[in-house]
Design a binder for these strands. Structure first.
Lengths: 199, 199
DNA sequence: AGATTAAGCGTACGATCGTACGTTATGCAA
DNA sequence: TTGCATAACGTACGATCGTACGCTTAATCT
């Protein structure tokens, strides 16, 4: 069935391609995702796939956007109603570890995968990734600062190091699960987070 | 200069290829390393490069072997003289974070890179990686168990979760440095490790 | 109804991928 | 000194890569 000019159907096509790209990327890395393999998965021609995005980098960027959207939905949306400070921080630890343990992608948490894939590269994906992660870091920092001000955390709390620790623990859930077969990775990460926060 | 049959010279060639592969892999991932690019770097023909290893997977495995050798030299060899238990564990934290911060590869710690690249894949590299990492984990577990027995750590220490925490923190040094530009990532990891251990 | 727009297809391109093969040149053993 | 093993070469192969182009077809708008 060639050539339905319905903008709505096209949008659905885009989404299915991006979803397939995310699935593949979670296993092999976003940079190893190939137009040809995507075309096979979504049962389209290569030109039909790339035609939606004009360039591969645009497809990668839209995939990253999906990752952020997922993270926002699964983590931020369940936490934003909590009062800023220690309560929201602890709620974030819950939602965050839960998300990393069951991210909805076959190869584990795509946020983690993309982070380690593009940390040492240049380009638009690297830049967008950094921007998105910084937004989350800012939230964590705000919660920590508020918690310290409120007296819920010790005065000498090293905010930057705590943020580092939380991100570390969340990021190791995927390899612990996939490589070492650790099915309790999420709860270990959660336990570590509490210890790092030191509440 | 084609065809020197000196086994010694050939060994040097192998090493230079593997070294180049490690350098490249630290940036783009081991799976993205290409015979052609390696040939360019070491100034050889593609067939000359692959001829040393017969297959690309063999080259990848030998590269992983180099990574383990480096880790052994830089971390294990500097801590193995310490008495098993808390002293060796703390020494390991020092050497480990130091290594991750300055691994000698342009794209950061290759051990980390390979871990996140192959955690969700099948194959010989995945298997070898798991084996190598498990060896290190066994050492950490032994130190923790001894430390608990000796009364240096609390009785209720969750050994497995502490191991998880230490590996997490070490693994996030590279992305913190490369992505977020955090030049103090190693000391943050070190600080976190002490907290996780809870000594 | 006719014109316009755009989704998706098919084909083709130049590059590069990993690997196989035969050749050449060298060092070492007989 | 002759013969053998092998390091490295050059070439070639089939696949696959990302992308460009033109065509067909269907939905939308005048």
């Amino acid at each position: 069935m060639a050539g339905r000019a319905s903008a709505q159907a096209a949008l659905e096509t885009r989404r299915s391609v991006v979803k397939a790209a995310a699935d593949l990327a979670s296993i092999e890395g976003l940079d190893s995702v190939t137009i040809g393999r995507l075309a096979e998965i979504v049962q389209m021609s290569k030109s039909g796939v790339i035609g939606q995005f004009r360039t591969k980098e645009a497809l990668q960027l839209e995939t990253v956007e999906l990752v952020f959207a997922d993270f926002r939905t699964r983590v931020w949306d369940t936490v934003k109603r909590f009062p800023q400070g220690l309560p929201r921080l602890l709620a974030a630890c819950d939602a965050w570890t839960e998300y990393a343990a069951d991210p909805g992608y076959p190869g584990g948490c795509l946020m983690t995968q993309v982070t380690y894939d593009y940390d040492g590269r240049d380009g638009a994906v690297h830049e967008r990734l950094l921007e998105g992660r910084n937004q989350w870091r800012a939230t964590l920092r705000a919660d920590l600062a508020t918690a310290v001000e409120a007296g819920d955390l010790p005065e000498d709390t090293d905010v930057e190091s705590v943020v580092f620790g939380l991100e570390s623990l969340a990021s190791f859930i995927t390899p612990a699960r996939l490589l070492h077969g650790d099915m309790r990775a999420a709860e270990r990460a959660h336990q570590g987070m509490r210890r790092i926060i030191g509440a």
